[in-house]
Design a protein around this nucleic acid. Structure first.
Lengths: 164, 164
DNA sequence: TGCGTAAGTATGAAAATTCATATAAATTCC
DNA sequence: GGAATTTATATGAATTTTCATACTTACGCA
């Protein structure tokens, strides 16, 4: 090899891709999602829940008795993964499973009462936290962000259920 | 692929939290990030790269010779995880490591030439893909989304480097 | 009715990720 | 100068996640 290209402390180099990452939509989406979620997830863990458990509970609080596959889609998890998440949640007593009476292949998942309480409570916290974030971007586009994201999601994955 | 969206007619449940999830900012961010990334990641895998490898390469294409910790922060990975990602990338011949001459604790990571080629190429593809997405949200707030996300990120994690 | 196909869930095994902590080099500060 | 502290990376072990596929039930239809 040639002489080592030892960089000085000041990191002053000619980078042909200057500022790609930090202005790249996919990166900004991932970074924003990560950072925002991390903040709220602390509150989730304070309740002895894991993040996937919270996600599932939030889905079920809205629509109890979902089937595994659909729950997986909504919660953004892979089906086999969700199956195992539900198994653990059942052991913890958060949910119960029962096969669909109409279609024996389906397994429907129901929130147990105490878990529902906790879910509703967390949803309140989530709404408060969301409002804080919206306040942060009040002057930057708080009113446009949700519609924009929804448009994107609908386009990329028409199956994702988005009401409004 | 074609996930069925068939809710049984009998799904008449009282949901006190109607429409929480599908209008919740953190959910929309995660869902949008997931869906958008999934689309581009297919192109990454076509080149025989794993997603973490692409992320690291994109960072290094911009600023070669980063240290592990910083790379981890930018690429949104945990430090110990990044260490292992870099190990594999080194085995694959994508990058090389060398200890910082000034500070023996630091390990700097450099892109090898062929990997740089590939990175620059993928960055081009990424830009094209990004443009497609921006076109999709052209009328919904394409001009506001990046600034909004950046404001959010800066607020949540002031250490994240965002130029513009 | 019976057969081929599809849908829904589960599961083994491999790969990845996390968490706590070890190790080692630099810095602080007395 | 050196002990205490902080910073940077690596690593063991447990846990989680993925991938392919098995398994079961339902459905289409000749």
């Amino acid at each position: 090899m040639d002489a080592q290209n030892i960089r000085s402390m000041d990191d002053s180099d000619q980078n042909p891709e200057q500022g790609f990452t930090s202005d790249y939509l996919l990166y900004l989406l991932a970074a924003a999602s990560d950072a925002a979620s991390a903040q709220f997830h602390a509150q989730v863990r304070d309740r002895g829940l894991k993040v996937p458990e919270w996600r599932v509970m939030a889905c079920l609080a809205e629509q109890d008795g979902q089937m595994i596959t659909r729950l997986a889609k909504i919660a953004l998890y892979e089906q086999s993964r969700l199956t195992r998440i539900i198994e653990k949640m059942e052991e913890k007593g958060l949910v119960r499973r029962s096969p669909d009476s109409q279609d024996g292949r389906r397994v429907r998942v129901f929130l147990n009462a105490p878990a529902r309480e906790m879910a509703l409570d967390l949803i309140r916290q989530a709404r408060a936290h969301e409002q804080e974030l919206l306040d942060v971007i009040r002057n930057t586009g708080a009113d446009r962000i949700k519609p924009t994201l929804k448009t994107l999601i609908r386009h990329l994955d028409p199956d994702t259920p988005l009401d409004s």
